[in-house]
Write a protein that binds this DNA or RNA. Sequence first.
DNA 1: TTAGAGTCCGACCGATCGGTCGCTATAGTG
DNA 2: CACTATAGCGACCGATCGGTCGGACTCTAA
Lengths: 200, 200
Amino acid sequence: MSPRKSAAEARHTRERIIERSVAVASVEGLEGLTIGRLAADLGISKSGLLGHFGTKEALQIAALRRASEIFTRAVWVPAAGAAPGLARLTAICEAWVTYLDREREAFPGGCLFTASAVEFDGREGPVREAVARLYTVWRRRLTRDIRAAVEHGELPAGTDPEQLVFELNGIYFSLNHAVQLFGDASAPDRARRALRRVLS
Amino acid sequence: MSPRKSAAEARHTRERIIERSVAVASVEGLEGLTIGRLAADLGISKSGLLGHFGTKEALQIAALRRASEIFTRAVWVPAAGAAPGLARLTAICEAWVTYLDREREAFPGGCLFTASAVEFDGREGPVREAVARLYTVWRRRLTRDIRAAVEHGELPAGTDPEQLVFELNGIYFSLNHAVQLFGDASAPDRARRALRRVLS
DNA sequence: TTAGAGTCCGACCGATCGGTCGCTATAGTG
DNA sequence: CACTATAGCGACCGATCGGTCGGACTCTAA
């Protein structure tokens, strides 16, 4: 029936699976992914799908890693060229605010990080650890620029980087919440206002 | 085998089911509730359990309502006696910070509201609507005291209540995140520091 | 040209899912 | 005391879950 595929086509199949997994997981959660439905959506067999990953858990982690790449490409990369310190920090934050809108196609159900963090923060296992690792990397990136901004005198000398990261994260959780649960169109501006206060 | 129960005992059974559902859902999510496992945990039959609610969805909503009662009793009630305005607002916020610790028995997996909001913000249906309604009520309560505080001159005249609610919510999302995913013991103090800045 | 690796399918597995049904035994009501 | 309402059970339902297995096929490297 369906023709067998070359290695290049196989890679393409894998991409399709991950892409769809990210989209589904952003709505239903990583635990809400099911091999059967996913295979049916993509018009392939369950075993063909699972052959690419071996395990549902491996698929979840692959989806998580992909979400991380999307996030990085949308929020971190565009700002990476700016000068370390407050300039780059504000560039990151602005990209972060528009990120949800820009990646609506990849994340129809909202940011997969936020969702996964809440979904797995009460469990154990490799997925939870993967989520925690990704957040740690992200916090480190923010911390670095905050520290640079303090050294350059762009932020008050007494600034506690960890505290600032705590507050920044909160603003984005709240943004995600307002957008996803209430469709609040004024939320991005609220987030910007909150950012201005925190970064001054 | 097991004796049939009187109406009073039936009510007690219902309580046990809901109590356990809240605890499980705080870890596994409302969608992670399963009738079979729940029944086995409680030593009753699936049909006996489902007879109290009729539907898994009804059970989810019952658990959500119970979580709301717990939240209200822990955060709202203790502060209800304080003077409307900043006094009550700060009393609420302090209770809110200690709420997670105090209700660790009921919510072993963290605040069920935060979890449910993220879990259902990409879906449709009665559960999502119930979650949204609960958040709307909560925001209204906060907004009322913020407005009173502004009228009493306890907060700057230009304060936008909705903006302040946005930022308060963010602080608590971040608190929940830091506690649940990283077990960060300094998170409550970070939250208090952030609150002090926002409410001054 | 041929052997091996890799892709994918279809059939199948035991377990579990949410939910239904008929029934028994009791509690509460008149 | 008789009647009804109901709490709870056990058996069962079709659907779906994650996952396995053997084979058909194709591509690639030797």
